[in-house]
């Protein structure tokens, strides 16, 4: 009988290790939920689960493209710096940055840059030991669809979704939080830098103000995993951005009940967030500073 138990125990350990290598050899400190802890309190699995996903950078770039904001390849992080981030926290943040850059180039149909960034994202994934997320078939699709702009955009988006899915599956929540933060910062940096003239009350200003909601979910997500390596430090550095968002006024607006317009249901918000030009400039500066702090390489940091 003892042999059977031992056999079962061995099998379960082997299976657990093979399915979640992060648990056994975790460079990001993601092994807080040890197998032992799970064994003692399996009831945790039955508690209410709460998820805080945030929209991908791609949505922001689709928006700025749709409202007529021009593309500027100079805003993309220098691909030459991609291999210069050595510590796990920096790698995860910059993985998010380059994934956002990839979405930006794809949204504006910059085929050459998209292909280059897709390779960079794959390279960083390999450096982070998460290269399994990359579907070899997808890489072939990229090469095959060089002239198919719609497909390229879909493939670029898939890089983000695959990364999210892979990191979740392997319970690398810390890395996922940092990647999400890096991606959001880059999407904000590009969007804010691309707006040449601020018009309070415009749809563009409204979308920037609405980032208060997205940031709220992102911040909660980061706090949830702040015990994982690098997350707490990265979160603390968000103080200025958070203060700015906290200062944005919210006004309750007349709200209509859910209704149907033709066959379409309309759900309306009960609040409207606004942002002034001064607040916009403060936010832009705070995002620029944060972005610089995560994208600068070790060499640049020592020089500054």
């Amino acid at each position: 009988m003892k042999k059977i138990y031992l056999l079962l125990l061995s099998i379960s350990v082997l299976v657990a290790c093979s399915n979640s290598s992060e648990n056994s050899n975790d460079a990001n400190g993601d092994n807080a939920d040890s197998l032992e802890a799970k064994a003692i309190e399996p009831a945790d699995e039955f508690k209410q689960q709460v998820f805080y996903p945030i929209p991908s950078p791609e949505q922001m770039f689709d928006f700025i493209n749709e409202v007529g904001i021009n593309y500027s390849v100079e805003l993309i992080q220098d691909p030459a710096n991609a291999g210069k981030h050595n510590d796990p926290t920096s790698m995860a943040l910059n993985f998010g940055v380059y994934t956002a850059d990839l979405a930006y180039a794809a949204a504006y149909e910059d085929i050459e840059t998209t292909v280059e960034l897709y390779q960079i994202v794959n390279d960083i994934a390999a450096d982070m030991s998460i290269e399994d997320m990359v579907d070899k078939v997808v890489m072939k699709e990229v090469k095959r669809n060089l002239q198919n702009r719609d497909s390229l955009s879909v493939i670029a988006g898939r890089a983000y979704y695959d990364a999210v899915g892979y990191l979740e599956q392997n319970e690398m929540h810390g890395k996922l939080a940092l990647m999400s933060l890096g991606g959001w910062i880059e999407s904000m940096y590009i969007s804010l830098s691309s707006i040449s003239e601020f018009n309070e009350g415009s749809v563009t200003a409204q979308r920037i103000a609405d980032q208060k909601i997205t940031f709220g979910n992102l911040y909660t997500f980061l706090k949830k995993y702040e015990n994982e390596r690098g997350v707490s430090e990265a979160t603390q550095k968000l103080k200025e951005i958070r203060s700015l968002f906290a200062s944005l006024p919210e006004k309750r607006v007349a709200k209509s009940s859910p209704s149907k317009d033709g066959g379409k249901m309309i759900l309306s918000s009960s609040r409207k967030i606004s942002i002034s030009e001064n607040q916009f400039n403060i936010l832009k500066e705070a995002v620029n500073q944060y972005r610089s702090s995560i994208t600068s390489t070790a060499k640049n940091k020592s020089q500054s």
């Binding site: 998820f51 996903p53 929209p55 988006g157 609405d210 997205t214 979910n217």
Partner: peptide
């Protein structure tokens, strides 16, 4: 429509609740 990265899956049991916090943009 396009796939949204806010999509999620979870393991749930009978009698259990789960919350997914999403952002829906204007328009």
């Amino acid at each position: 429509m396009k796939y949204d990265s806010q999509s999620r899956s979870a393991l749930l049991g009978k009698g259990q609740k789960s919350e997914f916090h999403l952002v829906a943009y204007n328009g």
